[in-house]
């Protein structure tokens, strides 16, 4: 749906009129998506982003609450069939039908592979540098580059490198990190409810239809909520 976005474009011939127009529309509460200019200009970028954030946080949600995995998956699949755009689904545990239906992908396993590759090269390279180039020492006539005994450290330390870097990747990509304030839509979602959240500005079909769909497929509650109004 987001790829079918429609834009309204305004073209200006000089900086003066552009700044003037943007200030006027901001005052009227228009959300400016982006401004493109040939050179840096005096438009108040901060004001534009602030304005946009206000509009996003004023998002209105339609929330369907389900009591178990079975009815949730059922309603979720029916909604997708009808062309409903689902903003997010919150569940107490991972449900694979939902993860697949949401059409989001994670490349964390590929990232982990490359961290491993990096780890192996760095470790073998580091040990070769220390034992052969920087400070070669003879241990009972063994070769400086005693590759087989480097493998032990390489395996274990590579696992450590993969773990730590993958954890950081997970933390950064899912935005789960120390000190983050949880953006809770419905706090029962970590306990015993399964929650489908729709953005009222972009639901795909009309609200009564969605409500009817959820209710006929076993939703225990359907309610509306403004973002950040806990």
């Amino acid at each position: 749906m987001s790829t079918n976005k429609k834009y309204l474009v305004g073209v200006f011939n000089d900086e003066h009129t552009l700044v003037d127009a943007s200030e006027k529309v901001l005052e009227k509460g228009v959300v400016i998506e982006e401004v493109y200019t040939p050179y840096p200009n005096s438009i108040n970028k901060q004001q534009i982003t602030l304005n946009r954030d206000i509009m996003i946080t004023n998002k209105k949600y339609l929330i369907g609450v389900f009591n178990d995995e079975h009815t949730l998956v059922d309603a979720f699949e029916k909604a997708l069939e009808k062309g409903v755009v689902i903003e997010e689904v919150y569940t107490p545990y991972p449900i694979h039908e939902i993860l697949m239906g949401m059409k989001i992908k994670t490349r964390i396993t590929y990232a982990a592979f490359f961290y491993g590759l990096f780890g192996v090269i760095a470790l073998l390279g580091g040990m070769y540098y220390a034992a052969v180039i920087d400070w070669p020492l003879r241990f009972g006539g063994k070769p400086f580059n005693s590759f087989p005994s480097f493998i032990v450290v390489t395996i274990v330390a590579t696992i450590l490198i993969i773990t730590i870097l993958t954890l950081f990747t997970f933390s950064a990509r899912s935005k789960v990190y120390p000190g983050k304030k949880a953006d809770i839509i419905d706090e029962r979602a970590t306990n015993d409810k399964f929650i489908i959240v729709l953005d009222q500005g972009n639901m795909g079909i009309e609200m009564p239809e969605v409500t009817e769909l959820f209710e006929s497929h076993g939703a225990s509650e359907v309610y509306q909520k403004e973002a950040n109004s806990n």
Partner: peptide
Amino acid sequence: FGWTGSSKEW
């Protein structure tokens, strides 16, 4: 850590 149980997190 701000966990909410969204599908992106899971």
